[in-house]
Design a protein around this nucleic acid. Structure first.
Lengths: 237, 237
DNA sequence: TAGATTGTTAATCGATTAACAATC
DNA sequence: TAGATTGTTAATCGATTAACAATC
């Protein structure tokens, strides 16, 4: 729609939308850029820029109309029609996801799970567990675009390529394998990219730890620099 | 240590390290920047730049020595001493995390869970479930730096502030609440930042869906532009 | 030597931030 | 009017990419 809409901005648009819906629920009609900025942790300038990009114009004195914003943002982000999602890999994580559907936001629904192990297949339970052999057909028939990858690490790459082949466009990756879309896409001659988000908890924590250590080191170095400067200042006396 | 080390780079350094350890396990001794680049999905130039920043120098003909790299990266990222992590909120997600410890990478260990509901407390099981009142003391005593936030949304902000107060420096956030560290930090007079990573599966999927739609729209617009150009070209005949 | 790879510098790209004129 | 807020432009910042000299 507009090539000025980029990744971080989409994230913000989604956050605005959520806040706006709550504000509307509270009976508000208008909102200022600084209020929305506070709510999602951005500066007012960013908010105005974002709205400018999506084409919403405010009133110089009265701010923005909440209904207009909700309408435009919903349109830009895509109609909030319910989205069907599948899970591949019916091990512990897959099962947990299926059972704890509550995690899902409105409109997002897990409609099937797939597993290579025939023993796990079942049509009982809240979500059917189907054979991997049915996977491509199912994806096409139901127009599935988003899949959760929750298989053992050693088959992750293979299953991912299956997904890309089948037409999956977005993957939430619970394995600790780095999925490279470019390669898989090229190998299979598909032109459209597949977006991968990583959700491996171990990896996330590991990365958190590294970042914290890095910050601490930087802070220590900064303090040392300050100390050194202080020493220098002293020595100048 | 070096202010040229930034977030994305830390992520890459961790990935290099993992690959290097595997390569070493296979008996390799040297490695070229393009091999590592392929492995983690980066260009050789990025790899060389990264190594240059952390101070590892290679051999113009023979590439980099794996042992040297492993040594330096381990040092830069912090010794792989085991890191103790706690979970706050012993509901479904919290319990799942505790039971599926396997997700944890080597060196990462969940040592305790905290819950405000006294009925859930227990010293049985793989991980003790303690009262929230014990939380600050426990964090100080055990030098806990990283916590997983798995409480209901409506108490997320409060619990997060408790965490920051107690000295937690990194949070893996399973709620769908936007945790703003700046505010909490300022309010409580703490100078050090707290790093938050979001792991809410619903949010992740929602965002995936938005990004996919955006890409499709952009592609459609691009195709339309191409069509228009083609039409123009035709009309010129 | 010739070829291949490193290491560094400059250019580019993308997004955020700052500044300020317009105007309700 | 005076004050406050929008909307846009220019400046800045940060990271990646490209290019190429150095050299094994």
């Amino acid at each position: 729609m507009d090539d000025r809409i980029h990744g971080p901005m989409v994230l913000r648009l989604a956050r605005y939308l959520r806040v706006l819906q709550e504000l509307k629920g509270l009976g508000l009609v208008k909102v200022f850029s600084n209020n929305l900025g506070d709510a999602i942790g951005a500066t007012p300038a960013v908010v105005r820029k974002d709205f400018s990009v999506v084409g919403v114009t405010g009133n110089k004195r009265g701010g923005y109309t909440i209904d207009t914003l909700i309408g435009t943002l919903t349109e830009v982000l895509g109609k909030k029609e319910s989205e069907d999602v599948i899970v591949v890999g019916c091990g512990r994580i897959g099962t947990a996801l299926i059972n704890y559907q509550e995690f899902a936001r409105e409109g997002i629904r897990i409609v099937a799970c797939f597993d290579a192990n025939e023993d796990r297949l079942s049509s009982e339970g809240p979500v059917p567990v189907l054979s991997m052999t049915d996977f491509p057909a199912f994806v096409h028939e139901h127009n599935i675009e988003v899949a959760v990858l929750a298989v053992p690490d050693h088959v992750a790459t293979n299953v991912f390529e299956l997904m890309v082949d089948a037409g999956i466009r977005g993957v939430l990756n619970f394995t600790s394998v780095e999925l490279k879309c470019g390669a898989a896409c090229e190998d299979h001659g598909c032109t459209e990219e597949c977006t991968v988000h990583n959700a491996n908890i171990g990896l996330e924590i590991e990365n958190l730890i590294y970042l914290i250590r890095l910050k601490r080191n930087a802070a220590a170095a900064g303090a040392a620099a300050v100390d050194a400067a202080a020493t220098d200042a002293n020595s100048e006396v």
